[in-house]
Simulated assay, not measured.
Amino acid sequence: MIPHPAWPVDPGVIIPFLVAVALIELTPGPNMGWLALVSLSRGRPAGFAAVAGVTVGLAAWMLAAAFGLTQALLIWPWLYQLIRWAGVVFLLWLAWEAWRGDGDPAAGDGEEHRTLRDLFLRGMTGNLLNPKAAVFYVALLPTFMRPDHGSPLTQALTLGGLHLVVAAAIHSLIVLGGAGAGGLVLTRMQGPALRAVTAGGIAVVALWMAWETRG
């Protein structure tokens, strides 16, 4: 069939695709748990910095999948496991860091920009070390691509871009909800108690990731 001249993807798949990715993103997972903890304990700006990092990490996997690079994870299962366990260890390190009190929400204003930058980098790194994000794109995008429209690369980039928009929107709502609840939590809990709850929550997210990415 001759490719459609106007639409890079089949218009008929857009709404089903958006519904599918929205349901996937609304399913509780490590990203949702970590973002909720960050916004709960550190507030809205910190949460949005984390969302930006998560989105960049997802975008990197999306581009890798669009160009066929993530096939390596299917060819070499050991590589998938290596990235998976690196991600789990990274989250456990964040839990230990929270327990020690690094990035305490009561820190001085001079530390704000460094904290936001660090949260952006942590969100990005956490997603780069989550191989399930790569498998998600490899498994989902082809089911919504049609041979009579744009090239496979164009369709993958278009659909992947739509997913990033949906993911960022849902993650932002999580931040807003977490930050709203955080105001109540922070008035009742400070110091070691808050650090313990945050560290324990991140450790649970690490175990959650280990289970969810087990293959």
Rank of each mutant, 00 (worst) to 15 (best):
G178I: 02
W85P: 08
L63R: 08
P105T: 00
F144W: 08
M209E: 14
T154G: 10
V138D: 03
D148W: 13
G180A: 13
A66V: 06
G68H: 10
P147Y: 09
A134L: 05
Q81C: 12
L164T: 01
T115D: 09
L128H: 07
V13R: 04
W99H: 06
D118K: 11
W78G: 03
L23Q: 03
T27S: 10
L186G: 06
R214N: 12
G191T: 07
A193T: 13
M209G: 06
F17P: 01
A167G: 10
F136W: 12
V205I: 15
H113W: 01
M145Q: 14
A181M: 14
P3K: 15
R100T: 00
L79E: 00
I174K: 01
A203C: 10
K132R: 15
A86G: 15
Q71H: 15
T70A: 14
L91S: 02
V56Y: 08
E97V: 08
Q71K: 08
L26W: 07
L140I: 14
E97S: 14
A156M: 06
A72M: 11
A72Q: 12
A6T: 13
R100G: 00
L58M: 15
Q155D: 13
I24T: 08
A156W: 01
A134W: 03
F120L: 13
D102M: 01
W211T: 04
A65Q: 02
E212P: 00
A206L: 07
T213P: 05
D118H: 07
A52Q: 07
V19F: 09
P8W: 11
V205T: 13
T115L: 10
T143Q: 14
W93P: 02
A60V: 15
A106M: 04
G201N: 05
F17Q: 01
W99Y: 11
T187C: 04
A196K: 09
V38N: 01
E212I: 12
D104K: 03
G87E: 11
L74Y: 13
A72L: 13
Q81T: 14
W61T: 05
W211H: 12
P131A: 09
F67A: 05
Q71C: 04
T115A: 09
A203P: 02
P45N: 09
R122K: 06
A22R: 02
L40T: 14
L92D: 05
L37I: 13
V13Y: 09
G33W: 06
H163L: 03
A22W: 02
Q155S: 11
R214K: 13
P30Y: 12
L157C: 07
T70D: 08
T198F: 13
T115F: 00
A50G: 15
L37Y: 03
G178F: 05
T125Y: 00
A139C: 11
N127R: 06
W76E: 15
A107V: 01
G47W: 02
L63D: 09
G43V: 09
G178Y: 05
T213C: 11
L164I: 12
R188W: 12
R44S: 04
A106P: 01
G191F: 11
L176H: 08
R195F: 14
